[in-house]
Design a protein around this nucleic acid. Sequence first.
DNA 1: GAGTGGTCTAGACCACGTC
DNA 2: ACGTGGTCTAGACCACTCT
Lengths: 250, 250
Amino acid sequence: MSKRPTEASAPPPRYRQVADALRAAIDDGRLADNEALPSERELTEQHQVSRDTIRKAVRLLEDHGLVYSDHGRGTFVAPALVRRMSRYIDGFSEDTRQRGGLPTQRILNLEFSPATMAIAQLLQLESGHPLTRVRRVRLTNGVPVGLHDAYFPLPPGVKLELQEVERARSLYQLLMERAGFAPVEAVENLFAASADAEEARLLGVPEGAPLLVCERITLSDRREPIEYCLMKYVSSYRYSARITQSSRLA
Amino acid sequence: MSKRPTEASAPPPRYRQVADALRAAIDDGRLADNEALPSERELTEQHQVSRDTIRKAVRLLEDHGLVYSDHGRGTFVAPALVRRMSRYIDGFSEDTRQRGGLPTQRILNLEFSPATMAIAQLLQLESGHPLTRVRRVRLTNGVPVGLHDAYFPLPPGVKLELQEVERARSLYQLLMERAGFAPVEAVENLFAASADAEEARLLGVPEGAPLLVCERITLSDRREPIEYCLMKYVSSYRYSARITQSSRLA
DNA sequence: GAGTGGTCTAGACCACGTC
DNA sequence: ACGTGGTCTAGACCACTCT
């Protein structure tokens, strides 16, 4: 038992509630781009919480690029250009929806194969360790935009069936339920490459067409690599990022 | 007067000092990958500051991907794979050095031209507004890896000379001194494209070779766009990113 | 149960920007 | 001078993990 697996559970902390309230005010336009938020001391009274709690809420919004604070001036709503930028794990479906597209997928292939030296090293396994490999075409509004090629180990005794992968709305969600897959962080490398014959055929582009390649290593809560994924996107696909000052540690 | 423009200035806040001390311990190996840091209460005694200050230090390191905290377990050193990932403004010189390369540049062209509609819109200026444009080749260890094409308005009366641009160690630094240029944030869009004849010649690749294109809009502290930069990289160039769970606001 | 990080408070003072 | 965000404290209690 211990904790309910579904529904209800605990209420979010106060600072999250405050953050949600502010986000709602931004989303529905009660606070315009670059408009100042109420001061922290005002928010303290409005929400009847301590200033520190208010600051945590604001910091959360700031981390997500929704507001920015300037010492001595105030806290302001980030312009939409910045607010739209965000990139989180399992981005494709989310990203696509956010841009107003309908994300779908077509499973090409589900196979079980031993790890090559290269992949074994990345996943910190011995070469030859059994892996599951899923190849998919990602589509936006029915048009192919990317190829995903994912490799991951499954716990002993767990086997995926093609049917369930095809039925699942999200591969990650399926892996979470079936294998305790719990990604919390990932590192990515991006570069450009040319489409080979097969890639060209699957994506509906000429052979040699430029592709955006994104290699991803997904990490568990213990920061152990649990998946390697190679993604290739046609040139119309956009990968968005927001970068900030280092406010350097050194 | 008001504040000294050079040297000395104020000491960093306590939490920064603590963060620096911890970072140093990680950098020189006193704390290994995935090793637990001392608990927050221990750090409180070691550094003679309140727990909140310790938490701020740890949070800073966490934001930069150097450590990760797990509720009820402790705080741990992030594996090197994650620690190495970081992307901040004016990344090229810094990135390249960090990967052990020697970054240089060759200025192709410094010109003054009116904004096109497309660029005017991005920079929130009226079409035709006078802009400065700097085209450069970026090299790593003497080998061309990227083309940068930057557009930005200068304050009335300020003019850049080709000589000073060539002499400067960093374009951003020069713009900071000469024009009060103060970037604090940027948004980027990445995609793939093919090299045209001129790009191929400048980068030393065949025409049609795949390039990683990165469009960047740089923002001031007031979140006003102050620069548009179009960057194109050869396929050996790697753009690195670290992505995290959304810990979603909704 | 013991130890960890996570939330929260009520105050104080400092640094900065604006008028 | 005044209002803003930034730093800091000393305590309290909660939630989680491990054994």
